[in-house]
Design a protein around this nucleic acid. Sequence first.
DNA 1: ATCCTCATGATACATGTGTATCACAGGCAT
DNA 2: ATGCCTGTGATACACATGTATCATGAGGAT
Lengths: 201, 201
Amino acid sequence: MPERVDHEERRRQIAEALLRIADTDGLQSASMRAVAAEAGVSLRLVQYYFTTKQALLLDALARLGGQLQARMDAWIRAAGTPPTPRSIVTAILSCVLPTDAESRRITRTYAAYYTLVLSDPEVLAQHGTAQPDLLEGFLAKQLRAAQEAGRISPRRDPAIAAAGLLAMVNGLGSSVLGGQRTGEQALAILDRHLDELFDTV
Amino acid sequence: MPERVDHEERRRQIAEALLRIADTDGLQSASMRAVAAEAGVSLRLVQYYFTTKQALLLDALARLGGQLQARMDAWIRAAGTPPTPRSIVTAILSCVLPTDAESRRITRTYAAYYTLVLSDPEVLAQHGTAQPDLLEGFLAKQLRAAQEAGRISPRRDPAIAAAGLLAMVNGLGSSVLGGQRTGEQALAILDRHLDELFDTV
DNA sequence: ATCCTCATGATACATGTGTATCACAGGCAT
DNA sequence: ATGCCTGTGATACACATGTATCATGAGGAT
């Protein structure tokens, strides 16, 4: 029954199956057949909608990026009323920290991609990544605004502080995924660091 | 010629071949055959000295830990004369940051193991890990000492500061490996953060 | 000298992998 | 109505992988 079908919808369905596997069992378990089974379709269909595995991996990665973006937008919008500079910054950072189920999923899945990118950097080239740099720039802008509002000491360099913050959040995320810490503990550590940053004394 | 042979030496030779592959091509490329070829021995020998692949992976991981440990010891010993609290802390942190060839190698290889551990946590159980926690404790001790010497504000909590520092270094390391930053830039960011920490004003 | 155990080689086996091919059914345009 | 294009199934292929088996040569111990 070759009913004309919604390609985008099928692609989404398959790519999300891949992401689910990457989250639970890691990317090395995400074979074409496993993805097909998880998505409830035949192997042939996975091949049909994504001719090659690399294409599937890249498409799924892009979708993952979209999911993170959406989540960040939502958290920033919900950053208190009215939003203070610090509440915005906290929103940005705490939604890349694996605290709840979804952020845990996103973080784990990104981690699964991490080594892939490390061992095969040309993948990163094909993917229009730059996402971390964009995020860093956005965070730096927020810090600069907070600085101009007098909430951060003028001695600080916003770009450097943003880079350090993001690195810390990334590292805290790793430790949470590694089971050394709970998400709450990580958030507490982050908060103490923000105390130090947002301190004009 | 079954000359009685030094088992430990052979094991080291093979395990280091595995680590070399993990560094350059990632752990997923470290098949038994690839390791054998890299070590210049036959597949059978890899099986002989490490009956199973998991055993090889674990042994190599332990050796990697030893290498990092040795490097840290050396850097701490070489932390200026006389060592200030800050120089010790800098030594600890900057030797887990991929700045030179060897630390880059160690960091990359650890990263290769990272997702493996994530997707298969029982490996971590078999490995007497705890290494990050030990490191964190040691760092916290140094910070506490610096605090008592009046080089760090008494308002700081050394344990939390240590956790944050280590997370930041970890995150900075990731960004260096990911090519977003050079090792020098990462070190500069870390240094600014240490400026902030070692500031009793 | 005999035997046993250590070290090593060659090769086999079962399985999983990405990809390719063949087939075919139903809708759409002519 | 005919023929082409789209969606889908079944299956094949070539290869890589971890592990197991068989074989064998060389010391050392008895």
